[in-house]
Amino acid sequence: MIDAQNVGIVIILVGMYGLMVKKELIKQLIAVNIISVGLVLFFMGLGYVEGGGFPIHPVDTAVDPLPAALMITTLVVDVAITSLGLAMVIRIKKEDASSEVADA
């Protein structure tokens, strides 16, 4: 059955696969980001209610707002750690380049 939770878990597994086969550091960081996208989709699927409306002043049924609130926090953590990781990748490349020059 195709619903958001199952697709989310498949995307998480794609991210794990990327981490297992890609050697480049930047691709590993992207793979972790793919895991995070899958996770967001999974949580969005959790809160979804068939035919549900906005959770503000609900008329009859509304979607569950909690997963969306959690995911906003997670996205913030995600952006912060990704930028930190990218900075580290740049620094590792620079250090490697300078050590190669020193060797030659």
Partner: peptide
């Protein structure tokens, strides 16, 4: 960097398990 990648990945899988518990 290694610490970051693995900690980050472990955090996300922990979050997945929180979702399933939810």
């Amino acid at each position: 960097f290694r610490y970051l990648i693995f900690s980050f990945m472990a955090s996300y899988l922990f979050l997945l398990s929180i979702g399933i518990i939810y």
